[in-house]
Amino acid sequence: MQNIMLITASSPLSVGEFFYKKTQPQASDLSLILDALTQAAKLVHVDVNRAELAGILGAIGTENVQGEEQQKLDVIANNRFIEAFTKSGLIALIGSEENEGIILTGNDGAEYVVAMDPLDGSSNIDVNVSIGTIFSIYRRKTPTNQTPTLSDLLQAGTEQVAGGYVLYGTSTLLVLTTGEGVQAFTYDLKADEFLLSNPLIQTKAEGKIFSCNEGSYHDFEEGVKNYLNHCKTQQFKGRYIGSLVADFHRNLLKGGIFLYPATPKSPQGKLRLLYECNPLAFIAEQAGGLATDGKNRILDIQPIALHQRTPYYIGSPNMVRNVMDLLQSK
């Protein structure tokens, strides 16, 4: 049998240690917020891994504000993160995919707010496919001596202090950016910490993977159809999991594009700007990629509603520019 040599990093930094070492003024608070986030992520990691044994698979029998059937783990994950952010004392307000309105934490003097999708891809929970948590952290706009309002969350993606996701897959991985590159941290069960595993993720300028629900092909506009046909003539690989985090993560590392166009049924698109599209767009750009709604840079869009939706094209920059050219030449 061939011997396999295991290579390990020497004394990798935890998430809190990594960001505490940064020199920007908010580094100390940010490290504490990320510590709260990782504590919740560890609990969700356990929930996901023991879901079938614990009897928490399946739907709960209600719909969220999106009109989507809530899974038991959706609710559990939502509660985990709300509790962790509230207890941190540093988050004044939370916006979640699972809640119709904003969530006031009671920390009115706190300087930060969070938008999150607590469990992305939850339709895949019961079949053991990778799922994730997506989040954005912003500095609030209202004075800290006042009760925070929805306006504190309705900020363009360019205003994010941090954006990231937790991927619950073959390993549990935290990928995030604070505007200084993209880092990845892997959950080490033995150390019970998320430890730095990739200090600088860069995506490829050109990829060979396209990720799209081709079951809706006949509902796409001509520019999207033309791009998908181009991908096939170039013998690109079609890869679509149906969990946004998992599809995005694969393309981020290997080079590719994720497409979720508008359709007659969803003319504004289906993905949510604030807590799905913005954080991943922040990561994509910091890794050298692009994110657009087909015409506009995602991070420049000024949101007007908590659950605002948008068409979405994200990934390797040459591929995103190509689909934008085809969309605009129709």
Rank of each mutant, 00 (worst) to 15 (best):
P143Y: 00
L176M: 15
A40V: 03
A184I: 07
K225T: 12
D300Y: 04
D117K: 00
I103V: 10
G16Q: 14
E52K: 13
H45N: 15
L326H: 03
T133S: 12
K270E: 15
N49D: 10
G58A: 08
A246N: 09
F19E: 13
E17Q: 15
N78T: 00
G207C: 11
F18C: 13
V65W: 04
R272G: 00
I298R: 00
T142E: 14
F282A: 11
E98N: 02
L176V: 11
I56Y: 05
A41V: 10
L326E: 09
L196Q: 06
D126S: 12
S31W: 02
G101L: 00
I7R: 00
G163C: 06
F185L: 10
N226R: 12
A156K: 15
G169H: 08
I60M: 02
F18T: 12
Q235S: 12
V175D: 06
G179P: 09
P264M: 06
L195M: 06
E111F: 01
G242F: 03
I304Y: 05
I301W: 05
G289E: 04
S11K: 06
A162V: 05
A205S: 14
I102W: 00
D300F: 01
L104C: 09
L154I: 02
Q26E: 13
N3C: 10
I103M: 05
A262P: 07
F248D: 05
P25F: 05
T203E: 01
D293C: 09
A162D: 07
V245C: 03
P303M: 03
C277S: 14
G269M: 01
I125K: 06
N49F: 01
L119H: 01
V166E: 05
S243P: 06
